[in-house]
Amino acid sequence: MDQTATVSTLEKIVSEFDLVFRNKGMVSPSMSPDTVLDGSLGLESLDFAEVVLRLEQVFGVDPFGQDTIPEVRTLSDLCSLYGPVP
């Protein structure tokens, strides 16, 4: 496994979450691969849609624009859509 690529994917995704939190005037929580991406983070569904659009800019792909919408529960699930799972 390419450890550099994995870390980089996770960091890039967390960095986009940070941006969305900051834009909302919120402090970013500490995020790990096991973090559950639900309402407890303080993000609404529109914020998650924003993250996905930002990730499309970063990675050049939109895994949610395919035939089936992938199931995403944790940050690790989301990472796996864009690169190797850490």
């Binding site: 569904s45 529109l46 849609a49 924003e50 659009l53 949610f64």
Partner: peptide, 10 residues
């Protein structure tokens, strides 16, 4: 608008 696969447009 920007096209969004999750909410149509943003």
């Amino acid at each position: 608008p920007r096209k969004s696969s999750l909410v149509g447009q943003m």
